[in-house]
Amino acid sequence: MEELKRRYLQEFLLLSSSTVSLKEYVKVIKERQTRLRNCYAETIEMNSEDFVKMILLQGAPNDRLFSKPWMEVDVRYDMILLENQLPFFILEDLYDVSNIRNKLHHKGLSLLKLTHEQNFSQVDHILDFLRICQRPSNLHTESKHKLRKQSAWHAPSATQLHQAGVKFELGSTKNKFDIQFKNGILKIPRSRVTKRKEYFLRNLQAFEQCHCYDNKYISDYIAFITMLVRTPKDVEVLAQSGVMQNRLQNNDTLSTIYNYLGTGNFVSRNRFHFSDVATLKQDYFNTPWAGISIITAAIRLLLTLIQTVYSIIQTYR
């Protein structure tokens, strides 16, 4: 990779204006060296020259790897690792100095161009940028979605809801945060679960848990889904309604992953994005209709058991 980084730097310089020299890029990084070092939790034991060299090699993008599909996947995993992030401001500064706005043709610089167009002025790094791209359009205020009771945290599982008469339907939007509960119907946008998505969620979750105070919407989403998915049976219930598509080995694997994601996933009682939906246990289970639904389910189970016993008796008479 070190050799590839040198090639990237050379091609980045070739894309730049002929009036921009390597010394100018070095100067930009040196002027921001203190701020760069302060972005990292641990003290970076490097002298100034080596540090500047490292940042310059890391910050020069290229599409040599991205032009090879079999390598692109592996590189994507590395790029979204929380511990691999490079402060975004230095990428923007190098981009501005390069004067290559009209020569953009590969993904790395196109991403920088997109941030300028969208005015993401508070982006910390690439992973933060990806989190912002996931941001719900209806972020709540604290007063609007404060949880009413602690019991609301313990929402029932998908199996329990199904047995109580709640119906699951596939949401009409692709926005995974657009989860709605109304008239006994829980609408959830389709969730395709793959190893790649698990990896993506883990790193977004780690970033929010470490660095975000307000609106932990990724962590809130994980919390809500892990309330629903506790066992392989819960996965089956959601899959039957089309809400969940499991691309992993089996339902046991998926339920294990969600349970693991839920471990240590701290969310705020005053800023829980799905509090309106999470209170469905409190709102729905306490209604007369919910009681009737539970009684009906119990009667069906009893009748099924009686029929099974009767069949066994008839067989061995």
Rank of each mutant, 00 (worst) to 15 (best):
Q10H: 12
S16N: 11
T19V: 14
T19N: 11
V20R: 04
V28W: 02
K30F: 05
L36S: 10
R37S: 12
E42S: 14
I44T: 10
I55V: 15
Q58K: 09
N62F: 08
N62I: 01
R64C: 03
F66A: 05
P69W: 01
D74V: 00
V75F: 10
R76F: 14
R76L: 04
P87D: 03
P87M: 04
D93Y: 03
N99V: 04
L104K: 02
H106V: 06
K107G: 03
K113A: 14
L114Q: 10
V123P: 01
L130Q: 06
L130C: 07
H140T: 07
S143T: 15
L147F: 06
H154Q: 12
H154Y: 15
H162M: 06
F168Q: 06
L170M: 14
T173M: 04
T173C: 08
F181R: 01
K182R: 06
K187V: 11
S191L: 15
E208V: 00
E208G: 01
C212T: 10
S219F: 09
Y221Q: 05
A223K: 08
T226W: 02
P232W: 05
E236M: 03
V237W: 00
Q240I: 11
S241L: 06
Q249V: 09
N250Y: 00
T253N: 09
L254K: 00
L261H: 08
F266S: 02
F272M: 07
V277G: 01
A278S: 12
T279E: 14
L280N: 01
K281G: 08
A290L: 07
S293C: 12
I295Q: 12
L301A: 14
L302Q: 14
L305A: 14
Q307C: 15
I312K: 14
I312N: 11
I313M: 15
Q314M: 13
T315A: 14
